[in-house]
Amino acid sequence: MHKLIAKLLHRSPPSHVERLAGRDCRRLIKRIDETRELVELLQAQAPDLLRTHPWVLLWLEDNDSFLVELAEAIGEPSLTTDSRHRSGIWLRPWPLQPLPARTTNPDHIESQTIGAK
């Protein structure tokens, strides 16, 4: 992921990326928080979907990681979760424990994340 961000910043001047991130990085922080909110919703309302399609969580976790790394790459201080960001957005923590790479066994995910309430 570091290589992808480096390529992005090499092709687009940081000022362009910062502009896309919004004032005080608000747009970028909002996308991070919304991804986490979506995971919470899926966990609460569609646990069967997550058990049968565990890669959905991997996609969302990868997006979260990418956006957090992008924020840091443009100079955003380390993001403190479950606190108010300087943009005014309350940044919730990632709602699940990080999933092991290449998780494909729904029972494995259920026992570690979805089933633990």
Rank of each mutant, 00 (worst) to 15 (best):
M1W: 01
M1Y: 03
M1P: 08
M1K: 03
M1R: 02
I5W: 01
I5S: 06
L8P: 06
L9P: 01
R11A: 10
H16V: 09
V17A: 10
E18A: 12
R19V: 06
R19H: 13
A21Q: 03
R23K: 13
D24K: 15
D24W: 01
D24A: 14
R26Q: 09
R26S: 14
R26H: 15
R27P: 01
L28S: 11
L28W: 02
I29V: 14
I29L: 09
I29E: 05
I29Q: 05
K30D: 15
K30L: 14
R31F: 05
I32C: 07
I32A: 10
I32F: 04
D33Q: 10
E34A: 08
E34M: 08
T35C: 13
R36A: 05
E37R: 12
V39Q: 05
E40S: 10
L41G: 01
L42R: 08
L42Y: 14
L42P: 03
L42F: 14
Q43Y: 05
A44M: 10
Q45P: 00
Q45K: 13
A46W: 00
A46K: 04
A46M: 08
P47A: 08
L49K: 06
T52F: 09
T52P: 00
T52L: 13
T52S: 13
H53P: 00
P54T: 10
P54A: 08
W55C: 00
W55F: 05
W55T: 05
V56N: 02
L57D: 05
L58P: 00
W59V: 15
W59D: 15
W59S: 13
L60F: 09
E61H: 10
D62F: 01
N63Q: 12
N63R: 10
D64A: 02
S65Y: 04
S65A: 15
S65Q: 14
F66K: 00
F66Y: 14
F66G: 06
L67Q: 12
V68R: 10
V68K: 02
V68F: 01
E69F: 00
E69L: 11
E69T: 04
A73C: 09
A73H: 04
A73R: 06
I74L: 03
G75N: 08
G75E: 06
P77V: 06
P77S: 14
P77A: 14
S78C: 07
L79W: 01
T80R: 14
T80P: 03
T80D: 12
T81S: 13
D82M: 04
D82T: 01
D82W: 07
S83N: 12
S83E: 15
S83P: 04
S83C: 11
H85D: 14
H85S: 09
S87C: 15
G88F: 05
G88D: 11
I89Y: 03
W90G: 02
W90V: 06
L91P: 04
L91K: 03
R92Q: 13
R92K: 15
P93N: 10
W94R: 11
W94D: 03
P95I: 07
L96K: 01
Q97D: 08
Q97I: 04
P98C: 03
L99Y: 02
L99I: 11
P100I: 02
P100R: 07
P100F: 03
A101I: 02
A101G: 02
R102W: 12
R102D: 15
T103P: 01
T103A: 07
T104G: 09
N105H: 14
P106I: 09
D107Q: 12
H108S: 11
I109Y: 03
E110Q: 12
E110K: 04
S111A: 15
T113C: 13
I114K: 01
G115L: 06
K117H: 10
K117N: 12
